[in-house]
């Protein structure tokens, strides 16, 4: 009962999430038997492809044609469905990110395969196939039985982690013959460059209304610079236009799970916490000792951000030097 991983790339490279997906698929293959297949969409460097062997990939199929030049949900779903057939896979694994969320439900409906969305762990059993998934914005988890022979899973980032199971992967071309025709046209792509992306960042420095105004973000950017971190913010901050909308984290913004999330001048409203509670460690800097952010933080400093942050930046610099 083989497993198929959907691997997207970013400018020809894979990210940690891709390695996590392959690790997770290998974990499933151990449970159900079968081979770990990867479907790599678009042009990817050769050593990136072979690198997936470290996490247990055995067969890597690459599709590089025009049909996958940009994301069209139905086209991608049809290509994946064909790959499922070709590889005899019973389980398909995608990331619970923008692309995965777009493609997985289409594939699920196309194959009449049960969808396990936002899963956070290996299935507890495979017959029945029972997964654990995030519900109620991380305030709870559900155990869900996927009652079909075929199933589609989307994995939450940073939930399973990396597990090495060295394999020598075979790299094969896959030319889909049954792809749907693209029905959308991408007119323009605007990408910010140079900055660490919030979605990828291992450390995130985030500011809330307690920062008082956009002019005070220099302080947070300096801290982020020292930590090699991305910057983020609470919703009112982006609503006010102090920071770009792309930095808004929370239930209605980006949901992130870095190793370290530093919340400065953020009260910790339930909707904010919903977007960051998957972080491995949370540090809060807030002058109110009763702020709810301290209920989810691992470490906290009760004090004035304007005094604490610059000193903390210096302290981090010291630690980094040592």
């Amino acid at each position: 009962m083989s497993v198929l991983v959907f691997a997207e790339n970013w400018d020809g490279k894979f990210k940690k999430i891709t390695h996590e997906l392959v690790s997770y698929a290998s974990g499933i293959a151990e449970l159900t038997g079968g081979v770990v297949n990867v479907l790599s969409i678009g042009k990817v460097e050769e050593d990136e492809l072979t690198g997936l062997g470290r996490f247990g990939a055995e067969k890597i199929w690459k599709v590089e044609g025009d049909e996958v030049a940009f994301l069209d949900n139905r086209v991608f779903a049809s290509v994946l469905a064909e790959a499922v057939e070709k590889t005899g896979s019973r389980t398909v694994v995608l990331a619970h990110n923008n692309t995965g969320k777009a493609v997985a439900p289409c594939l699920s409906a196309r194959l009449k395969a049960a969808l396990g969305a936002s899963v956070v762990a290996l299935p507890e059993s495979h017959n029945p196939f029972v997964v654990k998934k995030k519900v109620f914005n991380g305030n709870a988890f559900a155990r869900v039985a996927l009652n079909t022979e075929m199933r589609v899973l989307t994995l939450m980032q940073n939930s399973y982690g990396l597990h090495e199971r060295e394999k020598q992967p075979e790299i094969l071309d896959f030319v889909p013959g049954k792809a749907e025709k693209p029905a959308i046209r991408v007119e323009e792509v605007r990408k910010q460059t140079g900055k660490i992306l919030l979605a990828d960042a291992d450390i995130v420095v985030s500011g809330g209304r307690g920062m008082k105004g956009p002019e005070n973000w220099t302080m947070l950017e300096e801290l982020a610079g020292v930590l090699n971190a991305a910057t983020a913010c609470s919703r009112p901050v982006s609503d006010e236009g102090w920071r770009p909308h792309s930095e808004h984290t929370g239930q209605t913004g980006k949901i992130i799970a870095p190793s370290l999330y530093i919340a400065v001048g953020i009260s910790g409203a339930i909707q904010h916490v919903a977007g960051v509670r998957g972080s491995k460690y949370i540090v809060a800097i807030n002058k109110d000792p009763d702020a709810p952010i301290f209920e989810v933080a691992d470490y906290g400093i009760v004090g004035d951000a304007f005094k604490v942050v610059p000193e903390f930046t210096r302290a981090v610099e010291e630690v980094k030097k040592s």
């Binding site: 301290f294 933080a297 906290g300 009760v302």
Partner: peptide
């Protein structure tokens, strides 16, 4: 295609280690 078998609330986190402003 799926069936919700049950729910669980995540275990509460250990309490926050609160430090003073001097302890950066």
């Amino acid at each position: 295609l799926t069936e919700y078998l049950g729910f669980e609330i995540p275990a509460p986190k250990p309490p926050c280690r609160k430090l003073d402003p001097e302890q950066v």
